[in-house]
Design a protein around this nucleic acid. Structure first.
Length: 209
DNA sequence: CATGCGATGTTCT
DNA sequence: GAACATCGCATGG
């Protein structure tokens, strides 16, 4: 991984609201085993003003309990009957907030990520982790990773990537993808012009037959 | 590029 | 029973 620092981000990094942590996470690296992804798109959920889009909005349940735990841990949830998505938990124990890891560039273990992502059709390199469910697959995240600590020398680490200063001017903010409530809040952050950022999709309500 | 729809199962009401 | 922090494929401009 070149001259990138391998030091995990300190837990204090996550001891802030997700809306502050999310843009600060852009350009940084999350690594799990052989695969590492440089984050290019994130979304914040929870706290400040109580966020109706957050899984934690209606209080603690079995599914969202990790969100109420200590900062710096992984919150993995299952959705749409087939996808896992990963968040990094923010704010101290008892207060729920998290950053959804929406997209990134695979900077290590491209071969492993490709093997996990490809079924029958080939996947363009920039699409390997372009979208939250795709990113989770590329990094090998599933149910069993829920609650894992990402600070320290565990199997999942969030590393310092390129200095946030270097991309500061390129960070954009806008409405969150696919959320029904609280879509106006501009808590989606991305690196402008980066090809690994996922396409924006508004929320669509649907009824099943 | 934008919009639309089906797939699939878990969680919470 | 409804809703869902998505994705892949299809169609239309």
């Amino acid at each position: 991984m070149g001259d990138r620092r391998l030091t995990p981000l300190p837990r204090e990094f996550f001891d802030r609201p997700a809306c502050e942590v999310a843009p600060d996470l852009l350009g940084r690296i999350i690594a799990h085993g052989p695969v590492a992804v440089r984050l290019t798109e994130t979304e914040a959920y929870g706290k400040p003003g109580e966020d109706p889009a957050s899984h934690s909005f209606r209080g603690r349940t079995h599914r969202n309990s990790v969100m109420f735990g200590p900062p710096g841990h992984l919150y993995i949830y299952f959705t749409y009957g087939m996808h896992f998505c990963a968040n990094l938990i923010c704010l101290p124990e008892g207060i729920a907030s998290g950053v959804l890891l929406r997209a990134g560039e695979v900077v290590s273990g491209v071969d492993v990520a490709r093997y996990r992502r490809e079924n029958d059709r080939p996947v363009p390199e920039r699409d390997l982790a372009r979208g939250p469910a795709r990113l989770a697959v590329a990094l090998g995240f599933a149910r069993e990773h829920n609650g894992l600590d990402c600070c320290g020398e565990g199997i999942v680490r969030v590393l310092e990537g390129e200095p946030a200063m270097a991309i500061k001017g390129a960070i954009k903010a806008g409405p969150r993808t696919g959320v029904a409530a609280g879509a106006e809040t501009p808590w989606r952050f991305w690196i402008d012009g980066d090809g690994t950022v996922s396409p924006y999709r508004p929320h669509v309500r649907r009824i099943r037959a």
